[in-house]
């Protein structure tokens, strides 16, 4: 049995706060990583996580003993992210006439990047991380979340289907399509890498 599950079995109203704090301390790192990969920005990830913890604390009495806290949190984070994402989409975009148009900006980032001037060794990993993050931000959010949960968080398809509230077939399809899109976006980078190694 998981530590979180043991904790939730011995719950009483008096130690509710201590228990919640303990759970947060255990899972804050993977949850923050998830939020960061989802939003692509440190500040947005922190805001999202703070909001998610507040929501989780307010409905902590409904948290079912025997279910994993991290999976429950993934669900909350994803729902909040989707809500914020929709709100942002509904909000009118105000920009200067001198600035490039947002859809043109996005099209520009999807172009083949130039990796010829990459710094060596340790910086390479940082560069790879940044490139992958940029690519992740370009794929639709329902594919992105499935890929993040599977490859970064290491959840099984069954667990992902529980978190996202969709069927196994949908999860399978989203992961596959997400990876195919990432492959298309990252192909120039990997090709360059291969050529440099040779």
């Amino acid at each position: 049995m998981l530590r979180s599950e043991c904790l939730s079995l011995t719950r009483s109203p008096s130690n509710r706060w201590e228990e919640f704090e303990e759970q947060v301390r255990i899972y804050e790192k993977p949850l923050y990583h998830f939020a960061y990969r989802l939003t692509g920005d440190i500040n947005d990830a922190q805001d999202l996580l703070q909001e998610a913890f507040l929501k989780a604390y307010r409905s902590y009495h409904r948290f079912q003993p025997g279910t994993a806290f991290d999976r429950w949190m993934f669900q909350i984070i994803y729902r909040l992210f989707i809500d914020n994402y929709r709100k942002k989409r509904r909000r009118p975009f105000i920009s200067s006439l001198d600035e490039p148009h947002p859809h043109l900006e996005q099209a520009k980032t999807a172009d083949v990047p130039d990796y010829s001037n990459l710094p060596e060794d340790s910086a390479l990993r940082q560069e790879l991380g940044r490139t992958i993050q940029e690519a992740l931000m370009l794929i639709p959010e329902n594919f992105r979340v499935a890929v993040i949960l599977c490859d970064i968080q290491g959840l099984s398809y069954e667990e992902i289907s529980q978190v996202l509230g969709c069927s196994l077939g949908t999860v399978r399809s989203r992961i596959h399509r997400g990876r195919r899109l990432l492959r298309e976006l990252l192909q120039p980078y990997f090709r360059e890498e291969r050529r440099r190694k040779e």
Binding site: E28, Y32, H33, Q50, E51
Partner: peptide, 19 residues
Amino acid sequence: DSLEGLEPPAIGGDFLRKV
């Protein structure tokens, strides 16, 4: 493999501030 090898960001700030 690249996704699995991604490093998590350094934890900064109090996530329980709003709580």
